[in-house]
């Protein structure tokens, strides 16, 4: 039996129509057209960002949508959301509602329920909606950057204004540079250009020549001085120079001082025992002190002598 044209047409039409109707029916069913709808009321201080038909999302899944927006007597925005019966289980008494306004994409109300075992939210209860605004956050982050960019732009503008200004610094520099190069092209040397007088240039040349001669004579003097210094050094620091002798003297003095110190301590001991002969010992002690001071002076003078490299006359006490 051959399939008639009418059958083929009928089959196509009926098959596609059934497919289409079934799809639409399934869509309507999944969208909750045939299920019981529960209405919850949320509140917000501002209606900004809310729109009718806005999706209500739980864990990334659409569970309902905003049905109506109203303004109550207290100036609060009331947001009525419709949730199909099968999604009511996600709305708990401890659920939080957040208006999420992403930078890209549509705004939505995000429902979060910390404890899914807590009791269901009563339909009459009004819950507040918090707002997360990606756009404002992004603007706040970008604001300083924009200010910096604005400053840079202003600076660039100022620079370009100066560049374009005929009386501006750069143009003046360029004009001067042009003058300099022109002058340089006309003059024989930079010096001539600087003093703008040929006679002066000659004088400078002569002075420089003279300076060269003076430098040569000074150089000779310095060489002589060096030789003299060498001699002085040998008389001071040589084997039979002043300084080794001074060292010997100092060592001698130090030896004497040590002996004196011993003497003084002995005397102190004796002074503790002999109270009566105190006066005589005091005189003796002051003499010793004087001697020590004198030695100290001699040491200072020696120190001065070493620093000035002169051949001093050392007067020992």
């Amino acid at each position: 039996m051959s399939i008639t044209r009418e059958f083929k047409v009928g089959f196509l039409v009926v098959f596609t129509a059934i497919l289409l109707i079934a799809t639409l029916f399934y869509l309507a069913y999944e969208k909750g057209v045939f299920s019981t709808i529960h209405t919850y009321t949320l509140s917000s201080h501002s209606g900004d960002g809310f729109t009718e038909g806005m999706p209500v999302v739980f864990s990334g899944f659409n569970i309902g949508k905003v049905h109506a927006l109203e303004l109550n007597d207290q100036g609060l925005t009331l947001i009525k959301i419709k949730i199909p019966n099968k999604h009511v289980k996600w709305i708990r008494s401890d659920s939080s509602f957040v208006l999420y306004r992403p930078l890209i994409g549509a705004a939505r109300i995000v429902v979060s329920s910390a404890n899914l075992h807590s009791p269901l939210l009563p339909p009459g209860e009004i819950r507040e909606v918090n707002t997360i605004n990606d756009i404002n956050d992004a603007i706040a982050k970008v604001q300083p950057l924009i200010e910096k960019i604005t400053n840079i732009a202003e600076n660039i503008e100022r620079l370009t204004n100066q560049l374009s200004d005929p009386a501006g610094s750069l143009n003046r520099i360029l004009a001067n540079a042009r003058k300099v190069t022109d002058t340089l092209a006309r003059k024989k040397s930079l010096l001539e250009m600087a003093v703008d007088d040929e006679e002066s240039v000659k004088a400078v040349h002569a002075a420089l020549k003279k300076l060269k001669d003076i430098t040569a004579s000074v150089d000779g003097v310095l060489k002589k001085v060096d030789k003299m210094a060498d001699k002085t050094d040998s008389s001071l620091y040589g084997k039979d120079g002043t300084l080794p002798q001074v060292n010997k003297i100092l060592k001698d003095i130090i030896g004497k001082l040590e002996k004196l110190d011993t003497t003084v301590s002995n005397i102190n001991k004796m002074s503790g025992d002999l109270s009566e002969g105190t006066k005589n010992f005091r005189i003796l002690r002051s003499d010793i002190d004087d001697t020590v001071n004198a030695i100290d002076d001699v040491a200072k003078k020696l120190d001065d002598l070493l620093s000035t490299k002169k051949e001093p006359e050392i007067k020992l006490p």
Binding site: R5, E6, K8, V9, L12, V13
Partner: peptide, 13 residues
Amino acid sequence: LVNQIYFTSVQII
């Protein structure tokens, strides 16, 4: 109509 649907839709399927 049947002929037209046949030529336009069924034949082209």
